[in-house]
Design a protein around this nucleic acid. Structure first.
Lengths: 202, 202
DNA sequence: TCCTACTTATGACATTTGTCACATACATTG
DNA sequence: CAATGTATGTGACAAATGTCATAAGTAGGA
C-alpha cells in the first residue's frame, strides 16, 4: 500500500483528488494540506511514501516544499511528485514534445501513482521536481521597485501617489515604470501589470 | 438519475468534478464544456437536468450562460447551478436575475455539493451563506458600453484599440470612459475598472 | 407633428503617461 | 585613486487620457 499526502490550495480539487485516489486499491491518502507549509509538517509527522503537490500555492509553493523535503532527506524517504499540465510553455513542453519520459522517478510507487493520475485526468501528469524547477525558470525580470510600481498602477493609482507611497520622485517612478513596460514588452504600464499579474509576479 | 453538464475552464477541476460526481449513485455527468458557449450547445443537444457552471470563463461566462438558458426555458427544463471560488458582491444579484437556482463556493466539500444537486433537482433554491451578506449590494450603474470599455481598459488596451473592438470612434470611447469614471467616483479609468471588478460588475 | 431622450461624434484644452538623454550621488572593485 | 556600476533624479518632448461643451442623427411618446 502506497501512503500519500496531497498538497493543493483549491480545496475542491484537494477533496476530489483524495477521494478518487483513495478508491484505488494500492493507494491510500493519509494526509491533506492546503499549502506547502502544512504539507511539510504532515510529512514530518507521518513519513509518507509520496507527497503529491501542486505548484502554485500560498505561503509555500510546491517547489519550495520539494526543496525543503530534499534538504532533510536523511530523516525520511518521502518522494515529491509534482502535479502539472502539459500545456505550459517552455522547457517542459519541449521535453514532452520530444517524447522524453517525464516521470524520472522510475520506481514502482510513482509509476502506480502516475497511472492512476492519468486514468483520472486526461492531460495531467506527475513529474519529478527537478524537471519542474527547470521548466518554471521563466523568472521574474522585474526589480523590486518595478514590481511595486506595477502593482500600485494596477490599482489605479497615479504616478504622484505611487511616488509618495514608495518614497521616490515622480520622475523616477515613471522611469521604472517605463523600464517595466519594455521588459515585459507591453504597450503601457497597465498591460505590463496585467502580464506580470498573470505570471504570478505581483 | 440526475443528468448533469459541467462547464469549467480549468480542466483540472473539470475532470475532478465530473469524476467525483459520477461516483454518486444518483448522478450522471453526461457532458463537459470548457466555456459557456460549448455548454450551451450541449444543453440544447442533451437537455440535461442541471448545468453546473463556473462564473469566470473565456468566450461566454457562467452568468451569460445562465441568461441564455433562462431565455429559452420553454425549450427545456434545465436548471443552472453556479459554482464559484471568489464570491464578489454583485454576482449573486446578477445570477438571481438570470434565474439561477444555486450559488455555491468551490471549497464546500463535495458531499455538500452532491446533496445540493439533489435538492436543486427537487426544485429548491440554495445560496451559499457567504454570499448572502453581500447579496443586496448596490446595483451596477454602468451602461453596457461603459462596462465593456472598462473591461478592455483594464487589460491594458489603448483608447484606439478599444474603439476598434467595439466599433465606436475613439472620442466616444473617451466620453464613455469619462462617464464611467465619474459614476464610480474614481480618479481614472483604471481605478474605475478596479472598483467595478471588485463589485463583480465586469 | 413636436418634444424628448439617447447614442454617437467632434473639437479644444488640461493633465497624465511614456520615452529618452542626461545628471548626481554613492558604493564596489581593480 | 580612478573606473565602474547602480539607484535616483531632472528636463524636455511626444503620446495618451480625462473633461467638457456642443451637435447631428435616431427612435419613441405625447
Amino acid at each position: 500500500m502506497i501512503r500519500i499526502i496531497i498538497a493543493e490550495d483549491q480545496s475542491m480539487i484537494l477533496g476530489a483528488l483524495s477521494a478518487l485516489l483513495d478508491l484505488e486499491d494500492d493507494l491510500s491518502v493519509i494526509g491533506k494540506a492546503n499549502n506547502g507549509e502544512q504539507a511539510l509538517k504532515l510529512v514530518n509527522e507521518l513519513n509518507p511514501d509520496i507527497v503529491l503537490t501542486d505548484i502554485e500555492m500560498p505561503i509555500m509553493t510546491g517547489i519550495e516544499l520539494a526543496q525543503a523535503i530534499q534538504k532533510q532527506k536523511q530523516k525520511h524517504s518521502t518522494k515529491v511528485m509534482i502535479l502539472t499540465t502539459f500545456a505550459r510553455g517552455g522547457y517542459l513542453k519541449r521535453a514532452m514534445d520530444a517524447g522524453v519520459k517525464v516521470n524520472l522517478l522510475k520506481d514502482s510507487p510513482s509509476d502506480v501513482l502516475a497511472d492512476s493520475i492519468s486514468k483520472i485526468f486526461a492531460g495531467k501528469t506527475i513529474v519529478a521536481p527537478e524537471l519542474v524547477t527547470e521548466a518554471w525558470a521563466e523568472t521574474d525580470p522585474l526589480s523590486d521597485k518595478e514590481r511595486k510600481i506595477l502593482k500600485l498602477a494596477y490599482e489605479g493609482k497615479t504616478t504622484e501617489e505611487i511616488a509618495k507611497v514608495i518614497c521616490l520622485s515622480p520622475g523616477t517612478v515613471r522611469n521604472y515604470s517605463s523600464e517595466a513596460v519594455s521588459k515585459l514588452e507591453a504597450k503601457n504600464r497597465i498591460e505590463a501589470a496585467r502580464i506580470a499579474w498573470q505570471k504570478g509576479w505581483l
